[in-house]
């Protein structure tokens, strides 16, 4: 029997900033990432050392997004792609025994504006619906213009 412990450890990962002193505009980019820490132990508390770890994204439960091994303490860390919000599956297997933990990843877990915006759209329409609506509006203007121009030439 296995017991699973799961912890989330938010960790800021800042990219090094490039600085040019001769009047150049200085900018920096900071990436903030969520680091997920998986700890796998047996009921006895013994760590599952060197166990196989397989990670699936919410959108693809068939093909592994990442594979790896736990360390000597039964620990495995990974940085999920936070643009893929939902339940991430982490499967840990060893010697014919295994278990799954489900890690909920949401845009709220990062404060990077771009990521939040990408995940936080409130537009209820699909891109196709948006395109159709835009085309209809354009066609309305064109149709009206054609109507009046025809009346003038008549």
């Amino acid at each position: 029997m296995f017991r699973w412990m799961l912890s989330f450890a938010p960790l800021l990962l800042f990219m090094p900033t490039l600085a040019h002193a001769h009047g150049a505009r200085i900018e920096y980019v900071a990436n903030e990432a969520v680091v997920v820490t998986i700890t796998a132990t047996y009921d006895s508390g013994t760590p599952m050392r060197d166990a196989q770890v397989i990670i699936y994204t919410p959108s693809d439960p068939v093909n592994a997004w990442l594979t790896g091994m736990t360390d000597h303490a039964g620990v495995f860390q990974f940085v999920p792609d936070v643009t893929q919000a939902g339940q991430w599956e982490v499967v840990v297997r060893q010697a014919g025994h295994g278990g799954t933990v489900y890690v909920p990843i949401s845009a709220d877990q990062v404060s990077g504006a771009a990521t939040v915006q990408a995940q936080g759209s409130s537009n209820p329409m699909s891109p196709m619906q948006t395109a159709l609506m835009g085309a209809s509006v354009v066609w309305g203007f064109v149709g009206t213009a054609l109507y009046f121009s025809r009346r003038r030439t008549a």
């Binding site: 029997m1 297997r93 295994g98």
Partner: peptide, 10 residues
């Protein structure tokens, strides 16, 4: 004892 599983799942 728990013999039944789903593969390696509990």
């Amino acid at each position: 004892l728990h013999l039944p599983h789903v593969g390696e799942g509990h």
